[in-house]
Write a protein that binds this DNA or RNA. Sequence first.
RNA 1: GGGGGCGUGGCGAAGGUGGUUAUCGCGCCGGCCUGUCAAGCCGGAGGCCGCGGGUUCAAGUCCCGUCGCUCCCGCCA
Length: 597
Amino acid sequence: MHEMKRTATCGELDAAAAGTQVTLNGWVARIRDHGGITFLDLRDRYGLTQVVFDVSGEAQDALAAAVGGLKLEYCVAVQGTVRRRPPDMVNPELATGAIEVAGEQLVVLSTCATLPFMVSDQAGAHTEAREELRLKHRYLDLRSATMQRNLALRHHAAQAMREALNSCRFLEIETPTLMRSTPEGARDFVVPSRLNPGSFYALPQSPQILKQLLMLSGCDRYYQLARCYRDEDARGDRQPEFTQLDFEMTFVDQDDVLEVLEAAFAAAFRDGIGHELPLPFPRIPFHDAMNRYGSDRPDLRFELELRDFTELARAGDFGIFKKAAERGDTVKALRAPGLAGYSRRQVEELEEHAKTYGAAGLAWMKCGADGLESGVSRFYQAQQAEIYRALDAEPGDLLLLVAAPWRTACTALGAVRTELARREGLAAAGVFKPCFVTDFPLFAWNEEEQRWDAEHHMFSNPQAQYLDSLEQDPAAVRGELYDAVINGVELASGSIRIHDPALQRRVFAILGVSEEEAAQRFGFMLDAFRYGPPPHGGAAIGFDRTVMLMAGEATIRDVIAFPKNTWAASPMDNSPARLDTHQLAELHLQVRPTADS
RNA sequence: GGGGGCGUGGCGAAGGUGGUUAUCGCGCCGGCCUGUCAAGCCGGAGGCCGCGGGUUCAAGUCCCGUCGCUCCCGCCA
């Protein structure tokens, strides 16, 4: 170790330490040079301590020179005496603000080049530099108080979730990251095999099948902080590699799994940010969530519930809506309390928003003191009283309406709902409203390919009351499927699985998966399920998103140490990168030029 | 695949309708200063305005193309 090894961190000294000799190691966060006296803010993971160098005396020339040469982000060691600050110079913003260290010796452990951007030292704030630059020099970005906090928060959340599951008899078991491509929704990341020319591993999109096999193996309860890989376009809350707290349980029903989810989230929020989530989480069936909030991941921090307007539209004179209702489409209404003052421009912006979610348009009217005004109100003069009653409308409200097939109408107006909340500041920070969304449909009709897809995945159990009518009316079948949602963010998803091979065959048949295809793609699993598979179910928690939510960040990249950008690349190490011809040859690969190169 | 936003010294921003020394804050370099904590004050260096082409007497500004970043739709069971 270097000379001047630390005896204290930069975050632990307080008035009780006054008078003691200490050595601190850390980085120069700030220098305030007043001539004869210089203040140095020394930073490490634990905090910030002010060091004072009084170099006015002639005998201090050597120290003065050393202090004068300091630059931001030099790594240094300081030895000195802790002393109380004079009362009027205490800094209440700082954990160590009651004291300062009178610096007596300074050793520069290493120097620092001119910074590409300032390391942010303000809690909750990121550096001003654009994200691309932050990612290129991620090691510097991670020095900031905010990123340090995020990494620590992530650690504590992980430990809390582990403990919560440990105390429920779960075993942490690892599964391979090199495995075969399995039938899941996303594109696979693929790894060529050197020993098996032309063959490839796939990186897991989730350990789904393997954890089910662990249940068959009698492990009873399994969990894993599993890295998952999906080759799809990124988003603020989504990047190609991410972490799930994946778990699975034997001999349980849906309520048992939901309880574990509640325990895991409660522990993470408690240990991570000291927040007590209210238990149990409210449960909202999928259809209710869509009808009331226009989303299968409702943000419950604000009301703004959607209402059905279909029958009113059928009886009204607005031709477009009338025809929609008669055609079997749904008309949804959103009452925006007190927003009748919205300008035409503002409503048009909301309409544009609705259109991106598939709405043909956004109709509107205003609730005046003497009845409905503006927009499409002239078509509904005869029904004013009925409309006020049905929507609980009051003078001063703005009414927004969408007509479309049920799901589109709900989704589009639901998007308007969250956009309104954003504009009006209704979604408060620091408030967490969890819920479970349950009773998802098992199958979704794929219009393009004219067939049924699995809404969740093809191993999810249909609810018992649909077992006799599976084939007759797939659209009506609800599964033992559930999501956990907090503040409009989907944080977990799971299901009770099919453990009866005969039922599994029926589901495959509905999905159009032939026996041969099933055998070829995941025969090992079907084979395994011949050997006494137990009833089981589980879920997976989107761990990055959970931490993002707790940290109050807008993107999961801010809670991942070394994330990828939206083009799945890392500006720091320039990955992905080309392989040299030798490596390619060894892997039996040949790179074909792209059409445009 | 589609749509929106952004790209100006190391960083963040300002630069109506085109007009000649491209502005400000931070950082950097030099100087002054004994109580700051976003220290202050004085001075200085540093920019082919993402790139390519076009219009024009004249382009950071207008047009076309292109690249990069970012947000959203699609996609992501």
